[in-house]
Every structure is written in C-alpha cells, then in structure tokens.
Simulated assay, not measured.
Amino acid sequence: MELQDIDLNLLVVFNELLRQRKMSAVARTLGISQPAVSNALNRLRKLLDDDLFLRTSKGMIPTQLAGTLAGPITEALDVIHHSLNARATFDPLTSTRAFTVAMTDIGEIYLLPGLMERLGKLAPGVKISTVCIHGDSLKGAMESGCIDLAIGFLPGLTAGFFQRRLLSQQYVCIFRKGHPLGRRDMTLEAFAMADRVSISAEGTGHTRVDAAIQQAGVTRRSRLSVPHFAALGHILQSTDLIAVVPQAYAERALVLFNLVSAPCPVKISEISVNVFWHATRHREVGNQWLRNVISDRFAVCPIPEATMSPQGLVVNCRGE
C-alpha cells in the first residue's frame, strides 16, 4: 500500500478512536458527525482488510492489527502535528549557532570589532564566519542558505533580496603623512599628477571609482591595482602612492598606518552600505535576530521606512 492510497483524515479518526474508544466522543472532538466517523472507519477497514475496532460494553476495542498500528500511527501524527504547529525560536543567550556573513575586507575592518563586542554580551555562544564577496556566486550561495547575510555596497543584489540601509559613505583620498600632497590643497590637477592605487573589489560597486576618475578627465592610469583593501595601508605608509577609499576605511586606517586624508576632488556619488538577506530567510528568526543586532549597532537612520522597488524590497533602517 502506498501513502497516496490513504486519506490522512482516516488515520486521524483511527487515532482518536484509539484514545477515546467511542464514536460519539470522536465526533465531538473532530467536529464531525457520528455517521462521518463510522464512514471513515469503514473505509479504513476496507483498505486494511481488518475490523480494527470491535464494539463491546466498554466501547470500541482495537483488534490485534489496530494495536500493532497504534504506536507508529500515533507517533507519526504527533510528528506531523508538531511540525505544522512549531514556531521556531532563537535564544541568543544559549544558542551555539554559526552564521556565515559575506562582506568585503572593509566590512571586516569597520564592522567586525563592534559586532563581535556586541555579540559577546548578547550571544556568547554564537559564532560568525565571514566569506569574501565573489560576484554572481554570492547570489547562489545566499539563495541556497550557505550565506545568511551580506554586508556592503552590493548593487548586484536586487530581485529576490531584501536590504536594510546601515550607513552612507563618501569617498576620500588618503596618503602617508609627509606626502607632497599634504602641503597644498588637493586640486584636480594635483590629484591627476599623483601615482595612485586602485582597488577592484570583485562583486562590489567600488569599481565605479576608476570610471568616475576617467570621466573627470584624469588620464593617468593607476600604478598599482589590488583586489581588496587588506594591504592598502601597508602600501600607502611607505610609498608616495595615494588611494580613493570609502570614509569608513579611512577612519580605521589613518591612525593605524600614520596616514592623512583629504576630500577627493573627483565627484563620486556616496555609497550606501546595506545588509542583505535572501527572501527565503526573511522570516527565519535567527536571521532576523542577527540583522537586527547589526542594524541596532550600525544603522544611522532613526526612522523605520520600507519601500518596494521593481528590483526588490528595500528596507531602510529597522523597518521590515
């Protein structure tokens, strides 16, 4: 016999008869008529070729086959009932869950210290693993649940993704203390003559910096191109190279690497650093908790606001 041959409602009636032993009581419990209970029992008797329950002065007594089926059927229905009515919970104080978050190295430098400090107080057993952002592969990893959240300037994550704004960033120029540019204003002409490091962080919107510089008429190519920000401070502190970076990186790098910053003479639109999650994780309580922690710690916008765009839902601040 295959499962598709059995109406699950028949097993529900069977289970109630095991428990109450009276058709009238089963009918009241299930909210159906007594003839409907009798009809269900007759259908099940035909399917299993057994009487299943016998009438006695003490009520309906199960046959040997019914007694054999009682345990497995009761257990199976309990599992189904629990699964359908379960409400997932997440207790940060006791959880040992491991979350995977995609972010650039700027995100690691700027966000991770504060995030881990907060988690140490709220969820001491929770673990965070970060992964690099790699273009289209990020979408698939988030769709499959391999990555819980992504943080950064990621204009490629649109349809199928939710996002919440954390902060906006301007681009600034940074270079070592004592650099010749530090002795005069950072004009477009001075910028155009300087040797530059460009950062092409794959999968992020930072590649538009070079495009904006070219559109400003700066024809001199960068002398060095690196795929991330990790080594940038080390490079700048010992050379006359300059770099155009988000302000968040500059805030962390200036003191650490003895650098200075100046407004960038090239007009580059500010970037929005968002936290992203896939629609399949929108109602998942652990994911909700972590992105709320991140938003509470780093979001600068005080008023919840959510808007729907053709590309997907954009959630600003803490609104969901």
Rank of each mutant, 00 (worst) to 15 (best):
H228F: 00
H228V: 10
F229D: 01
F229W: 09
F229I: 11
A231C: 08
A231V: 12
A231M: 11
L232I: 12
L232V: 14
G233Q: 08
G233N: 07
G233S: 08
H234Q: 14
H234R: 13
I235G: 02
L236A: 05
Q237I: 02
Q237P: 10
S238E: 08
S238Y: 09
T239V: 07
T239G: 05
T239S: 12
D240F: 06
L241P: 05
L241E: 03
L241S: 00
L241M: 12
L241V: 08
L241K: 00
I242Y: 05
A243N: 03
A243I: 04
A243Y: 02
V245P: 00
P246A: 01
P246Q: 08
P246W: 08
P246M: 10
Q247G: 07
Q247N: 13
A248Y: 11
Y249N: 02
Y249T: 03
Y249P: 02
A250M: 06
E251Y: 09
A253S: 09
A253F: 03
A253Y: 03
L254K: 07
L254Y: 04
V255D: 14
V255I: 07
V255L: 03
L256W: 01
L256H: 14
F257A: 02
F257R: 01
F257P: 07
L259H: 00
L259T: 00
L259C: 04
L259Q: 02
V260G: 00
S261A: 14
S261E: 15
S261I: 08
A262Q: 14
A262N: 11
A262D: 09
A262K: 15
P263G: 06
P263S: 07
C264E: 04
C264Y: 06
P265F: 04
P265E: 13
K267D: 02
K267R: 12
K267T: 01
K267E: 11
I268G: 11
I268C: 12
I268Q: 10
S269M: 03
S269N: 08
E270P: 09
E270F: 11
E270L: 12
E270N: 12
E270W: 13
I271V: 11
I271H: 02
S272F: 05
V273C: 10
N274D: 13
N274T: 07
V275E: 02
V275W: 01
F276Q: 08
F276E: 01
F276M: 06
F276K: 09
F276V: 01
W277I: 07
W277L: 13
H278P: 01
H278N: 15
H278T: 04
T280V: 14
T280F: 12
R281D: 14
R281C: 09
H282E: 11
H282V: 12
H282R: 15
H282T: 07
E284A: 15
G286P: 10
G286L: 03
G286Q: 07
Q288E: 11
W289K: 14
W289M: 11
W289D: 10
R291K: 14
R291A: 13
R291D: 03
N292T: 14
N292A: 06
V293K: 12
V293P: 05
I294V: 15
I294F: 14
S295E: 00
S295I: 15
S295V: 09
D296H: 03
D296W: 04
